[in-house]
Design a protein around this nucleic acid. Structure first.
Lengths: 246, 246
DNA sequence: CGCTATCTTGACTCGGTTCAAGACCCGTGG
DNA sequence: CCACGGGTCTTGAACCGAGTCAAGATAGCG
């Protein structure tokens, strides 16, 4: 029976990602309210836009499965990838101010999201203080993340940026139960470059160098981190420099 | 009578900045609750730290008067100015997640802030929905601001960064009733450079060029924007390039 | 009034960009 | 099944914008 009309009702209580996108200690009555608010999950194909910049803001989205990039555009066509997002992470919080998204959100593989209508969420948060606080924390986390990117763009060389990027991906994958040191990149060299403030050629060259040095194995999009501890040290290599000099 | 013991009680209802840091439409009963929560304003001298990175997070701060920078540090001593803040703007939202500030906040001139203890604010927000929503919006605004900086650091050359920076300062000063095109910088060339991902020499050279071209007048920290419309166009100069080419 | 911070300016260097050519991969269709 | 084609990736060589290093100038502070 293809295309059943039965709606796939999301159920937060049984969702394996609830530790990632919800506060701990919710009661079953809270989950009921929550399930009443959260809309049926939405499916996207690779390349689909979840929302566009400038579009009227209605909802925040939690990623159930898949992988996304967000990007902001300048009027002249230049754009900047502002983040990569995986399961359990939230998208769209930039839209709360101004009632319009400032980013575009694009699926980098077939994905599925839970839609959280913001006006209902806001009202729900009144009754579940821990949920309210949780959203504050998630937004705070997004601010911290963005500031770390600023640090990267403002102070690091290409090698440090790439190592930081790979270690960060590795940690987030590990937190979801995937292999930390063996994974497939969902994004192109150009998208990595845009995120890191580098050209795609520089990304390619830097990865080649890491490969040549035996620190990671790079076979197109298949990455294996061979020497995690070395890669970690490279994130702020001038630290080690400073130490060995003094 | 030096040093009176009378506490300077803040009063949000009569504060000239309330349009900036509070939602519109608060009732007098709301202001009473708010005044009960907001602590006596705290004074800082130029150079004082409002909070340090890693310090236990207790409060968000609203700037009454003065000027601040925030910065994050790498373990090797490199640091990055993540923002400049003026009256009516909020500091410390990065601390909500993890219960610790990730930034340092430093007064760049003698300043005065309102302290908003977060646990009481969170509780207060339960009873004033518009206040709760307002904080969501302020955090969303901070995310957008940070992403615009990412765009600047990732895609713009020195001249574009400086023009963006000056126009932004100009607009925020104008919104506070100050002259938009004649102001004094509160920060050093090095601090501007750190914020913009440039070295201080590059900041100096670029300002000199803008001065030489008659677009702004630069006398040390005294800036006059002589041709605001030209400066605006420079923010994304390749836009005009792209247009003239096509 | 002098000292130190900060700022300006010049000359040179260098990391990352640009431009270009070729390799590789995968999806598509014959 | 394989050949084709377009997009993605790698690599090389030349270039350039910002960084580095250095020397003075200037302002502001004590």
């Amino acid at each position: 029976m293809p295309h059943t009309s039965r709606r796939i009702k999301t159920q937060c209580a049984s969702c394996s990602l609830k530790e990632l996108c919800l506060p701990v200690g919710l009661q079953s009555v809270d989950f009921e309210k929550l399930d009443g608010v959260i809309k049926q999950s939405r499916r996207l194909r690779k390349g689909d836009y979840l929302y566009h910049s400038g579009e009227n803001f209605q909802s925040i989205y939690a990623i159930r499965t898949g992988f996304f990039k967000t990007l902001v555009s300048l009027s002249d066509g230049r754009d900047q990838v502002t983040g990569f997002f995986m399961s359990g992470e939230l998208l769209g919080m930039d839209g709360i101010d101004n009632h319009a998204y400032t980013n575009n959100a694009v699926a980098l593989e077939d994905s599925e999201v839970c839609e959280l209508p913001f006006n209902r969420l806001d009202e729900l948060a009144q009754f579940i203080p821990s949920l309210n606080l949780h959203f504050f924390r998630l937004m705070s986390r997004e601010i911290i993340r963005d500031q770390n990117v600023m640090m990267m763009l403002g102070n690091m060389n290409a090698e440090e940026r790439l190592s930081t990027f790979l270690i960060n991906l590795s940690q987030r994958l590990a937190a979801r139960g995937f292999a930390a040191n063996d994974f497939v990149l969902r994004m192109s060299r150009e998208e990595i470059g845009s995120y890191l403030g580098l050209k795609l050629e520089t990304v390619s060259r830097t990865l080649s160098r890491l490969h040549h040095d035996g620190i990671v194995s790079v076979e197109h999009k298949h990455i294996r981190i061979l020497q995690p501890q070395v890669l970690r040290q490279m994130r702020s290599q001038s630290l080690s420099k400073a130490c060995s000099e003094s």
